[in-house]
């Protein structure tokens, strides 16, 4: 479904991605783990064309999206809940969800809104509250809800568990699992919280300094002693 082939991305002179190959098949949850500064966020943003890949190709459902303008991407069926959530702070929860549905046929709006509210009842309670005044967990729910409002076939999630209480993390991961099972949504999940992510994922990649160093099924990587030493020990769950 998503094929990233030999992608290089630069910030000025700094090469943040040094030839990345990643495949995400339809219906999968694929996770990408790696320590801070590895280039995970850069990869998700490069898929969305901001920054743009300097070399390599990105295809989605057979279509080359490497040079596609960022604002057209959501129309192809890719939505992102980005690092840091990036809620529109001075818009209400409802308006943030409206923004998510910007490029979607308005006839689906009510139904999609109900779906998001049933996944995250908290958002309905906070409907008229400004995004910037929500707690971290609520903002994360809103970021995912906003992404879902565009009816994506591929959902990109960048560190949804960052800075959240364990209970909220569990709730968010349950939702990810549910939309994958129930709605057959394909999910590409970036996490530093490797334990939860690997348990959830069908397949996983490990990134170090802009290079993919390991890949395998979630179970394999969970059992891999190197991974355990680098990403799991030290109680990241």
């Amino acid at each position: 479904m998503l094929e990233v082939r030999g992608v290089h991305t630069f910030y000025g002179q700094i090469e943040a991605l040094k030839g990345i190959d990643v495949t995400v098949n339809e219906g999968e949850i694929v996770t990408l783990i790696g320590s801070n500064g590895a280039g995970k966020t850069t990869l998700l943003m490069t898929i969305c064309g901001s920054p743009r890949a300097a070399k390599g190709t990105i295809t989605f459902e057979g279509r080359d999206i490497t040079r596609m303008p960022t604002h057209h991407l959501v129309g192809t069926g890719i939505a992102q809940s980005p690092e840091g959530r990036r809620i529109f702070p001075r818009m209400t929860v409802y308006e943030n969800l409206q923004m998510g549905a910007l490029r979607t046929d308005p006839k689906y709006f009510k139904q999609d809104l109900d779906m998001v509210y049933s996944l995250f009842p908290r958002l309905q309670e906070r409907q008229e509250q400004r995004g910037g005044t929500l707690s971290g967990g609520e903002q994360q729910m809103l970021a995912i809800g906003r992404a879902l409002m565009s009816r994506p076939r591929l959902l990109l999630l960048d560190e949804p568990s960052l800075g959240l209480a364990p209970m909220v993390v569990r709730q968010i991961f349950d939702v990810i699992k549910e939309i994958n099972r129930r709605d057959k949504m394909t999910v590409f999940l970036v996490e530093q919280n490797a334990f939860h992510a690997l348990k959830l994922a069908h397949r996983a990649y490990v990134m170090v300094n802009g290079v993919i160093t390991l890949q395998g099924s979630g179970q394999e990587l969970l059992a891999n002693p190197e991974i355990r030493a680098a990403y799991l020990e030290g109680g990241s769950h």
């Binding site: 901001s50 604002h71 991407l73 959501v74 990036r86 529109f88 818009m91 923004m99 910007l102």
Partner: peptide, 24 residues
């Protein structure tokens, strides 16, 4: 209006506005 929301979205976070499909 949608135009107004897009305008405010660009004002608050231009990158995110692009991600949800606003032609910045």
């Amino acid at each position: 209006t949608s135009l107004g929301r897009q305008q405010r979205a660009c004002e608050q976070d231009r990158t995110m506005a692009g991600l949800v499909g606003v032609n910045v």
